[in-house]
Design a binder for these strands. Structure first.
Lengths: 210, 210, 210, 210
DNA sequence: TATGAATGAGAATTCATTCAT
DNA sequence: GATGAATGAATTCTCATTCAT
């Protein structure tokens, strides 16, 4: 996990990167500051110059995800994909969205795993994630839906919250399947699989009136 | 978390129950055998009569989920809901399915949280889950789809894997939303929300040809 | 420092004895639990079965001084000396008192040094010492003075508090001199020196009307 | 604690003052060089330009007490009070002495607490204190006693050492009582209390022949 | 001269595991 | 079988000291 060039001392960045790697592999409690220090190439004491406690390292990762990765990477690219003028129909937008989100999840996967795990156990982290990322993404999607409804491409009866929950639910199901089950068995070609997901998101599982 | 009556010494059951409670609250590494022993009402040394190491307690929980909870609770009730003769249309099956799965997830939530966390970090656990539960559930769903296709209620072009991934993706999105985001903000009435999810699963987010 | 036989696990007693020795030699902060463990002949972890934190060891020593040593050793023997029927005059009581207190201070010197040092820095310890020992000793001395005044051996105008402060002040000055300055230079014979102290306590430093 | 203007770099003085404050509050071992540096307003590394090790700071404080405070403050004012021509009788000298010493002890209390604590634990410090201050003070007192004996105001049989030990013992008892026990309970008016101490020092606790 | 980042040895504390009772 | 005292390795964290700037 390499972090973008930040206004941050060299060593602090090294420590944060090492921490993301180690914690993502073993989980927070099972990771030791000594291992993080070793991987970061600093003395163990140095960690505590930058992070008062071990817990603060975790907080640092979360802050990083929210402030540094959250805004530009998660939300900006979300907007960019949704409102890209090149898309002519809903299908192409959704497909581009799924593709782009999938790649993003792969890219920030170590950080993601840490934050998901911690969010499972700590309400305060869920709150921060909701306020800083989820609620904002929902707002963006709402605008997108209005545009689509205006163009007659989405059903105006459908709750935007439910719709985006569905898109994300399908995305996560797809991601988990490809990432976790894929290595265990033979799976379908990625792009074909993705097309199926788009189909389902757009038209559901029921028989289609044609 | 109370376990069903098993062919298992009283004390071992007590320890397993206590372990599920403690580990679900703090995570595996952050839980101590002393706390598990205290909650189980046994001496610390007693734990190690039934589980060679702390890690074996975790394995015990997983085995329990797979063997004891997996077959009767997860798969049998899945079958029961899907093939219940009382359902006249797909909508009622899917809604019953979501409702039943939601309640099940709530019921076994402590165990679920442990297993999800561990599955995030260990491939061997993912493999066991896939072989013992997921692949079986997919098989069941395949049969169900064939029945539905025969009745003209589901589209035969749709991959059953993709369809069940979609159902589960929507279910998980719904569950996470109700469980984790619900307490943070005002959310819609449960049953109404559920109906929306069923709609989306059945017909997707696109504009509907009428 | 060997503690009397107490209702206390063998190991706890060993730890407390070792702690008194080590802490008395280096002071609390400069003493390490590892050294205490080594001297006590137990594993370092064992210390923390009996004392939750290092600070609790100090508290244990203080409690020991107050409860175990305080009542029987400090106060009872104080009473015994003061009200011993064998003494015919004030001089013999005071001399016996000084002798007995001096020996007691020597005996419990390691513990004393710890408690004095800590009392210098912590008001809560001073409070406990005052309530559990000093105020009680003052009460005992008050009774003694009444008896002496009744016998015409002490001046009724003299405040018992000031009188006992004087006795203790002289005693401490004597103790410090013998213990700390004695080893540095040639000092007077102990008994002769003690007689001088008694003289001063009884009649002061001014010219005596004869 | 502000030190008099010394032939000493500004920074060294600042460090020494800060050290006295910090060490007096927490004790030597519990004080950290980083806190001393912060309070002194210098970088942590700067401390080690002036004091090779942390221990040397303590030595610096002691040296300061002995060389700088010892001669002018402790001994000169002692002489001044004892041989002040204005005193007509022993009572007024002793009272003035006690008052002056009490104030001095209050003034240099932070330094005093440090030195007393260290003297309790280290013979070499006791030796320095004895040679540089105590023995000199005893010499001064001896001269004073000769004068008093000549004037018929003090008993020539009384050992000057014992007498000054008694005066200091009473003074310390008085100081400890006012400083440490005073805040815990209601105590007598200071001046009245002081008069009682003078009485006891001069005439002792025995019944007075009138 | 002054700085403060970096160090690493050592501190207190926790905890899974063992074993005598 | 059951206990829980004892262990000691490992953990987080502190801090005096060094040294490049």
């Amino acid at each position: 996990m390499e972090l973008p060039d930040l206004k941050m001392p060299e060593k602090e960045k090294k420590i944060l990167e090492a921490a993301i790697t180690v914690i993502s592999e073993k989980g927070f409690s099972a990771s030791s500051t000594s291992e993080i220090a070793r991987l970061a190439g600093v003395a163990e004491g140095t960690i505590f110059r930058y992070f008062k406690t071990k817990k603060d390292i975790l907080r640092g990762i979360l802050i990083h995800l929210v402030n540094i990765v959250g805004e530009p990477l998660i939300l900006d690219s979300f907007k960019k994909v949704l409102f890209n003028e090149n898309h002519k129909d809903l299908r192409s937008v959704i497909k581009a969205l799924l593709k782009e989100r999938f790649d993003l999840m792969e890219e920030i996967y170590p950080m993601l795993r840490i934050v998901v795990t911690e969010a499972l156990y700590h309400e305060d982290i869920r709150k921060i994630l909701y306020e800083k990322i989820i609620s904002k993404a929902l707002g963006i999607f709402k605008l997108f839906r209005e545009e689509m409804v205006a163009k007659g491409l989405m059903d105006k009866d459908i709750d935007p919250l439910v719709a985006s929950r569905s898109i994300y639910g399908n995305l996560v199901g797809f991601f988990v399947y490809r990432k976790f089950i894929g290595p265990l068995i033979d799976v379908e070609d990625f792009d074909q699989d993705l097309d199926h997901v788009v189909d389902i998101i757009l038209y559901g599982i029921a028989a289609r009136p044609r």
